[in-house]
Amino acid sequence: MRPVVIIAVFTLIWLAVSGSFTVPNLLLGIVASALSLFLIRGHIQPDGRRFRPLKALSLLLLFFKELALSAWKVAVLVASPKMVLKPGIFAFPLTVDRDFEITLLANLITLTPGTLSVDVSEDRKLLYVHAIDCSDPAGTRRDIANGFERKILEAFR
């Protein structure tokens, strides 16, 4: 993303958190976000990343749907008198390779039904995922690859 876009996003968050929508506060937000971006300028490298707002929005909607579904599933599982558990850790081969995308994918996986990302292998090719129902790891892998990973690739490439 371009610095201008990042500053705009930071300023929006500042306005939301500080809760006053006045012109001096807007200016303060712009100055503060520009300053904080200036302070971390060495850590962000421009890498020609594309950003598609509509695809990102659809990713966000999918995420909230899955979050509600996952909370519901865990709640039903815990409330059922006899819990049927088949937990296990399986390796998920990553197609995405940038730090940002891996972080996003790991976070999304954690908040989806029955899966929790545990670790990334040293060569960043495998993501280890703990699943509460690991009876069909191949199917879960396929679901993640066709769901979130594809959406991330669409939104940020």
């Binding site: 088949k86 937990p87 296990g88 850790i89 545990v118 690991c134 009876s135 790891p137």
Partner: peptide, 14 residues
């Protein structure tokens, strides 16, 4: 350790 019910652990094997 993981629980006895665990069916697989790719990470430990690696």
């Amino acid at each position: 350790r993981l629980t006895r019910l665990t069916v697989m652990d790719d990470m430990r094997e690696l």
